[in-house]
């Protein structure tokens, strides 16, 4: 067994194992209960795919694939950044602690209900 075939075996085994891990992370991205779990899973998939591209660049001896791996990781980072700014801008709490806002809203509803029961009037 020559060294070259040993290298090929090693890198192909690594690629196969990472394909399995990518499938598991895809399942996590689908069943993640909140949006942050999905973004996290997609971020991890991006990291693993960029390392897969690096392995392929060495195995196939195509050096331009390294540039694509760098671009892939950059785009993965920009995805997280833009999704974060979009979600924070679209949230009703808008930069405040979300549980505090939820409690305030619940309190206002309770006060409104008590006022209506006492006076029998609609709140303006």
């Amino acid at each position: 067994m020559s060294v070259e075939s040993a290298y090929t075996l090693l890198f192909e085994g690594a690629l196969l194992w990472m394909g399995l891990l990518l499938l598991i992370m895809l399942i996590r991205a689908i069943i993640g209960p909140r949006v942050t779990d999905r973004i996290l899973a997609i971020n991890m998939i991006g990291t693993m795919v960029s390392s897969c591209i690096c392995i392929l660049a060495v195995v196939l001896e195509e050096s331009y694939l390294i540039d694509m791996a760098l671009l892939y990781s950059m785009i993965s980072f920009v995805t997280v950044l833009i999704l974060a700014s979009t979600y924070i801008a679209k949230t009703p709490s808008r930069g405040r602690f979300a549980s505090e806002v939820a409690e305030e809203v619940g309190q206002e509803k309770k006060w409104l209900k008590a006022y209506q029961e006492e006076s029998g009037k609609e709140m303006p």
């Binding site: 942050t36 971020n43 980072f77 997280v80 950044l81 974060a84 979600y87 924070i88 709490s93 549980s99």
Partner: peptide, 20 residues
């Protein structure tokens, strides 16, 4: 970039999860 994206993710969680 990995700590930065973790920071942004935790910001999303902090600002959108009312049961945090």
């Amino acid at each position: 970039t990995s700590p930065a994206s973790s920071h942004f993710l935790s910001q999303i969680e902090y600002f959108t999860n009312p049961h945090l």
